[in-house]
Write a protein that binds this DNA or RNA. Structure first.
Lengths: 197, 197
DNA sequence: AGATATATGTCAATAAGACTGACATAATTT
DNA sequence: AAATTATGTCAGTCTTATTGACATATATCT
């Protein structure tokens, strides 16, 4: 056997120095904030695990979750706007969106001014799904903020917001174009048809 | 009044009521913390975009990043331990790990006590890659914490730590078994919760 | 010693979710 | 009429993950 006990690699060792194992721990000394880097990794891993379990029951994945979420948060957004927020391609969205439409979670409405556009709206079913997915995440957040005062919460929100690329920060919390804000937006989400013959 | 132009769906409408578009905005009124939910989504999306660009140059993906990171943070961990941290299967890890070994970023060392085990160590090259990947993330975090005092940072860390499933919280900040390095960092995954009911 | 269990590696098949490229259609704009 | 825009769709590829089955070396138990 040409191998020593150190290397079990099947590739021929190019140079023993180059494949020498580094046994020291990579720690914060290098001026890198590994603490927060890892905290973000673990926090997000578990944050997404909540809705994942619910989605699995529907045969959906995270892609469906993102679409359902933003359509509910910004009802009436167009396909192009959704692609921009999600930063995926049209073809990637297609399959997911089609499934959500076929299952009656989302409907498309022809744009009132530009009839080429498809405004996306949740149905009652889609609204319910969105709430069901968000509920455990919100509960997890509430638990994580237990014992936090107002300043603590503000610090967390400021940190997260500042983590976003400045030029993309505009997307955050942007309620729909029709920003009716609180007060019930459209009042009630009842149908509103346009005749077209 | 039967709707006409409202639905462009190709599927036969099962019931007009069921596919009626909901036009109201899904907002915090429902007692759900959509603000932080979306902040986490956007923050993590951009947080991972930094290393993604570097990885692309190597033909690597996020899976490689996670492996390189934890092998550097806990040099000498075994394959089984790595699988446990990443929460993926052996088969999923196999290809990624093989690539990292073949490219000389990681080496395997036979376990000193149990020779079935393979302890994973970075090479100098792997250490360098790990630092290169972490650097922009650390810079982003530092920028996001600019103007934050000690209490603010503590609030952020506490929030993130509490977002992790309690039973998995032990993995956090856990330095390697062999505490060769100075450590500092988080020490070990001690839970700190603000004394509150 | 022999049997069993463990740690790891590997082959094969599958799936979700993303990608690119190419092309079609309808509607708006020029 | 021509060009542009918004959307849809087909076809193929890639990465990362999955499960199942099986091989090998080593450790441990009886």
């Amino acid at each position: 056997m040409p191998e020593r006990s150190v290397s079990i690699a099947t590739k021929p060792p190019p140079d023993d120095d180059r494949i020498a194992p580094v046994r020291s721990v990579l720690s914060e000394e290098e001026g890198i904030d590994f603490t927060v880097i890892e905290l973000l990794f673990f926090a997000y891993r578990d944050f997404t695990s909540d809705p994942d379990q619910i989605l699995a029951q529907y045969g959906f994945g995270r892609a469906h979750h993102r679409v359902v979420h933003f359509v509910n948060r910004r009802p009436g957004l167009t396909v192009a706007e959704l692609l921009d927020v999600l930063k995926i391609t049209k073809q990637s969205l297609a399959r997911v969106l089609k499934q959500l439409i076929d299952t009656g979670h989302i409907v498309q409405v022809q744009g009132p001014r530009d009839r080429r556009q498809r405004e996306l709206y949740p149905t009652a079913k889609g609204r319910a799904l969105s709430l069901a997915l968000a509920a455990p995440q919100s509960r997890r957040i509430a638990r994580a903020l237990e014992g936090s005062d107002f300043a603590d919460r503000a610090a967390v929100e400021r940190f997260l917001k500042n983590m976003v690329d400045p030029e993309l920060r505009a997307q955050i919390g942007k309620t729909p174009r029709t920003d009716a804000g609180a007060g019930g937006a459209n009042g009630d989400g009842v149908e509103e048809n346009r005749g077209e013959g």
